[in-house]
Amino acid sequence: MNPVTTPIYLITGTSKGIGEALANYYLQQGVIVVGCSRSHSNIEHESYYHHSVDVTDEQSVKHLFTWVRKTFGRLDVLINNAGIAAMNHAILTPASSVERILQTNVLASFICCREAAKIMKKKAFGRIVNFSTVAVPLNLEGEAAYAASKSGVETLTRVLAREFAEFNITVNAVGPTPIQTELIKNVGDDKINALLARQTLKRMGTFDDVINVVNFFVDEKSDFISAQVVYLGGV
């Protein structure tokens, strides 16, 4: 493994779910993965470097990216996967919950994009993939704060794509359908089935579905693809 030529990927939220699946997949592809989450990670691989970081804490995130810069001298791909959801009727949603969602989904994505671009622009190459959700185009009831936060991520994606274009950094987003992860563990089957009924392709998503879209965005050949949001399930 040569850190000078091996691609360096930073993936947030790698302790479980999609983030863990993405990290394991890219490790299998032979890249170096720097992962982070508030908790520890179960991933054990010689090319995996885990950092316990709260992505809403600007200083901690800055330390993480400074470590990447000093250790590898570059960063090729950022996958902003870390996110939280809360599914409640708006009338029963406390402001503190909205604030927490906005901080994790919007603020953290912004800070990570900013710090990643600082490193990527030195090599005039970078791929950033953010995470939206089908809850945005479907305007899902019960997900006002979550969908609003992901709308923010989509706008962030489109504006940063323009701001970072001159550094040869592309910024795109993937919008998954429900996938069997901890994020939706408390959502009832009736709600999930009603959501699936609104998709063109009526099934739950899988980790592989997400990886497929992320792969497309991070491909070196995708240098003319930026400011795009791809939803799964034909939404």
Partner: peptide, 23 residues
């Protein structure tokens, strides 16, 4: 863009030469 590049170069050098975290 020059100004962004200049300020980032300064930020990075301050961090490296003074061994601090700085924005």
């Amino acid at each position: 863009v020059d100004l962004v590049n200049l300020l980032l170069a300064i930020e990075e050098r301050i961090e490296d030469e003074l061994d601090i975290s700085f924005t």
